[in-house]
Design a protein around this nucleic acid. Structure first.
Length: 272
DNA sequence: AAGACGAAAGTGGTTGA
DNA sequence: TCAACAACTTTCGTCTT
């Protein structure tokens, strides 16, 4: 729906040839989004110190230093731009393949900028960081995707995405709540083609479970899957454990265990 | 034949000494 | 840093529909 117009930034970056330095300055322009405090303050500090040292030692030296400083700044911003150019196009590709709405992609892009400016990408693969940013952005927007779902469209594996994600969260001091199983119910339900009624029923079950503390420490996807399974039985549009497990990317065994737990602790009667 | 059930052993990530 | 631990998976045999 909103997806047709995804290319305000995209096309500019994509046609990027290694030979042409000039274009880079134009690339810098569209970033109306903020540069954040940390990167900025660091830059200013450096400059001040350099200028101080130079003033004392004479005008010619001052000029030379100023030149060097400029070169250095250019090199750095150039490197950042290169990184961003590649990363943001990759982010956009993945985002649209996953089907993420615009606002989530913007959050991801913002996170990535912060990551680059804070030097978080140095030893790591850009792909991994981009994937991690997308994963984090989904969670921030309360529309979580599983690591498996991100992995499907990423060139790096789940493990590395997870690692980069944890690193990102730690270094940027992101405070993210554990994902709420309810956030998975609608999406899983849609994939299964169950009715609205069943989805709502599943959400009620999940909320009850949360209230009774049955969810802490458990995988949210398993809970969501089991809730949908139960709801489908109660609403008379039975899904199989297999089907539910598949969309939630858990095993049938997990669905069964959660199912048993929920039915039993919430006193749910299953129609025979 | 397909779905549901559950036991048993294995895996990867978190936690606490 | 290492070992214990819980959640989850894999595998597989057995009921039930």
């Amino acid at each position: 729906m909103l997806d047709e117009e995804i290319m305000d930034l995209g096309p500019e970056w994509r046609a990027f040839e290694p030979g042409q330095r000039e274009k880079r300055s134009r690339v810098g322009a569209p970033e109306t989004v903020m540069l954040h405090d940390k990167g900025l303050s660091t830059d200013i500090d450096w400059r001040n110190r350099d200028i101080h040292g130079n003033d004392i030692s004479g005008t010619t030296r001052a000029k030379m230093y100023r030149l060097r400083m400029w070169q250095r700044r250019m090199r750095i911003s150039d490197a950042i731009d290169r990184n961003l150019a590649f990363a943001l196009s990759e982010l956009d590709r993945m985002g649209s393949q996953i089907g993420l709405p615009r606002n989530i992609r913007e959050i991801a892009a913002l996170l990535y900028r912060k990551a680059v400016i804070n030097r978080l990408v140095r030893g790591r693969s850009i792909e991994g960081m981009v994937s991690a940013c997308l994963y984090a952005a989904c969670r921030i927007a309360n529309a979580p995707r599983t690591l498996d779902e991100i992995e499907d469209f990423s060139k790096v594996d789940k493990k590395e995405i997870g690692r980069s994600y944890r690193y990102l969260v730690r270094e940027l001091n992101l405070k993210l709540r554990p994902t709420n199983p309810v956030d998975y119910v609608v999406r899983f339900g849609d994939q299964l083609g169950v009715t609205e009624k069943t989805k709502r029923r599943a959400m009620r079950i999940v909320n009850q479970a949360i209230k009774m503390g049955l969810t802490s420490g458990k995988g949210p996807t398993g809970i969501a899957a089991a809730a949908i399974y139960i709801a489908s039985l109660l609403e008379g549009e039975k899904m199989t454990q297999r089907e539910v497990a598949e969309v939630a990317r858990v095993t049938e065994v997990t669905v069964r265990n959660r199912y048993k737990e929920l039915v039993d602790k919430l006193n749910i009667r299953i129609p025979t």
